[in-house]
Amino acid sequence: MVIWDSSVLFDHWDRYMQGFGQTVLASLLALIGSLIIGTIIAILRISPYRWLNVFGAAYVEFLRNIPLLVVVFFFFLGLPSLGIPLDGFSSGTIGLMVYTSSFIAEAIRAGIQAVPKGQTEAARSSGLSYVQSMWHVVLPQAVKVVLPAVGNQMINLVKNSAILGVVAGLDLMYYADLISSDTFLPIPVYTFVALFYLVLTVPLSMAVHYMERRFARSNA
């Protein structure tokens, strides 16, 4: 029985590449979306308005305490049952985005709260609005604190994107399943899949480290 055969990579290169491309695209879209949603939710959580706090807290607590698979199935199976059809790629990406945004929101909230209160007071006392003082004074300082945690979430997101394989999202994992069932060589097939994920995550974590060091070096 053959266990290892490197030719699966070259024989199925096109499928690998197609899946890899979709994985990159899904990760990128989910990443951008979750950063935007996460920042908004974080600001809601610490805003002076009580009902916004409650909404933000509910969003975070709900989403980060259920399995990613459940979130994705809600979009993949739940919405179509209400007459809103979503394909596997979209539902997987949106699920991933929404799910990750709850973790990012928590990280950003912690970062914002690490900025001394005097900073907001100085900004507000000079007539800047709440949003202006957030944008010009608090968030730029929070970034430095938040970077390691958000960097981790970015890497998690790329890895979690494998969920698309479950909902026919045409990503790396989806094609790997196809190649594996065609070739009966799961070990080389998934080894190459792992390498493809590493091609994404290793440079990403190096980039995060680099930025951390850069921010650490810039003034206090």
Partner: peptide, 12 residues
Amino acid sequence: GMVFQHFNLYPH
């Protein structure tokens, strides 16, 4: 205008 005990300049 307001001046604080701990200056509260924006460090960045």
